[in-house]
Design a protein around this nucleic acid. Structure first.
Lengths: 165, 165
DNA sequence: TATATACCCTAGCATTCTACTCAGGTTTAA
DNA sequence: TTAAACCTGAGTAGAATGCTAGGGTATATA
């Protein structure tokens, strides 16, 4: 079983999408700045998210990504599944051929654990995360940071333009 | 978070120990045969299990490993913790410094998941696994396989001895 | 129609981890 | 004395991660 930065990034990016769902298509460049995730890496993750029909894209200027359905209907387990191959805790992919074609001693234990984790993550929708107070606070902090950086970039541009003109 | 063959092997080996607890110290060579785990690899895992005071060793012929306390008091979570560094699902080790020193958007979610998994594995003792019917059946199968292989090896030895004499 | 924005795709790469082998020890029962 | 067993450290092939580089292609806007 794997739950690494890859899956965490995917969920974080999807949550960013859900939090800004009212602002039209969201560009990966924006997510990259707010969540501090490499743009190229995001592109690779979103390729898989799109293949799994979790997001839809709009190309061209002003384009970006949108959730392919309401955030109530997207669950964390689906996102992790889309980028990691699975959240299966067994070695045999649940088939029971973990020791020489037959089941190993602890096969049933890992099956139980897989079910436990899957049930837990399947019960958490993006909408329920958006509704959480602690997450809203973090989101506001990140939005402010981005606005601040944008303002700085703009003033830099004005100075450069002025000195050139 | 990592739950790979490493942690699974450790739990399997510890369960083998618990299942044969009445037979005195159990050699790694025996576990290696029954569970089909490389002997050298087992030695490395048991080094960690011993450091974490989950097993005690008896050196010399007839030696092997014993559980350091009753199987009722050894939990799967402790075993996985001993060989993997942790079953923590966050990126920051729970400290909350996952995005530039502050918490990332999904920090709280991974904390919840870690707690969930830890609670689950902390509730499962070796004794409770030994008591399971499905595990007893697998164990009997593996013991029979080993006895059969042993008998074959013995008869081979007799033939070799006879042809030499 | 030109241009810039943004998505899309493939290849490669440093690093880390896994699972394992090898080659040596040391302890101790018989 | 011998051999069974534990103990230790070094090394290694292969896979995965997280990321960079360098190209595309679609499309809104001027």
């Amino acid at each position: 079983m794997r739950l690494t930065t890859k899956g965490r990034y995917a969920v974080t990016a999807m949550l960013d999408l859900a939090l800004h769902a009212d602002k039209g298509p969201i560009s990966l460049a924006g997510i990259s700045k707010r969540q501090e995730i490499s743009l190229s890496y995001l592109e690779q993750l979103f390729s898989k998210l799109r293949q799994n029909d979790l997001v839809s894209s709009v190309r061209g200027p002003g384009g970006g990504y949108r959730l392919s359905r309401p955030s109530e209907d997207i669950y964390v387990a689906q996102i992790v599944d889309a980028v990691n191959e699975s959240i299966d805790a067994t070695n045999c992919g649940g088939s029971g051929s973990c020791r020489n074609g037959a089941t190993c001693l602890t096969h049933h234990l890992w099956c139980d654990l897989s079910e436990q984790i899957h049930d837990f993550l399947s019960g958490i929708s993006l909408a329920s995360l958006v509704a959480r107070k602690d997450i809203q606070e973090v989101s506001e902090r990140l939005d402010k940071e981005e606005a601040l950086q944008q303002a700085e970039a703009n003033s830099m541009q004005r100075i450069t333009a002025a000195s050139l003109g």
